[in-house]
Amino acid sequence: MSDQLSRVPPQDVRTVTCVGAGVIGGGWVAYFLSRGYRVVAWDPAEDAEARLRHLVGTAWTALTDLGLAPGASPDSPFDNLTVVPDLTDACAQADFVQESAPEDLELKRTLLADIDAATPEHVVISSSTSGYGMSEMQVRCAHPERTVVGHPFNPPYLIPLVEVVGGTATSPEVVAWTSDFFRHAGKSVITMDSEVPGFIANRLQEALWREALHMVAEGEATVEQIDLSITDGPGLRWAIQGPMLTFHLAGGQGGMAHMLDHFGPSLLSPWTRLTAPELTPELRDAVVDGCEREAGGRSVDDLVAERDRGVIAILRALGRV
Rank of each mutant, 00 (worst) to 15 (best):
R210P: 05
L5W: 12
G22V: 02
L63H: 02
T119K: 00
E211G: 07
D193K: 15
Y157Q: 08
R109H: 10
V19K: 00
R237Q: 11
A257R: 13
R51D: 13
L111Q: 09
T82A: 15
T275Q: 14
D89S: 13
E145T: 01
I200A: 15
E106V: 05
H54E: 15
V139C: 06
E206I: 07
F199N: 06
V162M: 05
P120G: 04
L158H: 05
D289C: 05
S269A: 14
H214Y: 04
C18F: 03
E99V: 04
R14E: 15
R140H: 15
G319S: 04
A212M: 03
F263V: 09
R307H: 14
T119R: 00
G167P: 01
T272Y: 15
P160G: 10
A257M: 11
V123P: 00
P70D: 14
V148F: 00
A59C: 13
L283V: 07
E292N: 11
G297M: 08
L318D: 10
S100T: 02
H184R: 10
A217Q: 06
P74I: 02
A62K: 00
G290Q: 08
V97C: 02
V174F: 00
V123H: 01
P152W: 01
N80Q: 15
Q241P: 00
L268N: 11
E163I: 02
R146D: 03
P234L: 12
C18A: 14
M1H: 11
V83S: 14
F78E: 09
W42A: 03
E145P: 00
L107P: 03
T129I: 06
E211P: 03
L5A: 15
V162H: 00
A72F: 07
T178F: 02
A45W: 13
S100Y: 00
F32E: 11
Y37G: 01
S229V: 04
E195W: 01
T82L: 14
E99C: 03
D289Y: 03
D47I: 03
D193A: 15
D289G: 14
R14Y: 03
D308N: 15
E163T: 04
E195M: 04
L283Y: 07
L268A: 15
A212N: 03
G319D: 04
Q241E: 12
V83C: 15
L260A: 13
M215D: 05
V189I: 10
P9W: 04
K108C: 06
E306N: 10
S188P: 02
L303G: 07
G297Q: 07
A313I: 05
S73Q: 10
A313K: 10
S266N: 13
D232S: 12
V189W: 01
A41M: 10
H248Q: 15
A117Q: 09
A313G: 12
W271L: 14
F78Y: 15
L52R: 02
T15I: 12
V162N: 01
L245Q: 11
R51W: 06
M192F: 09
F32K: 05
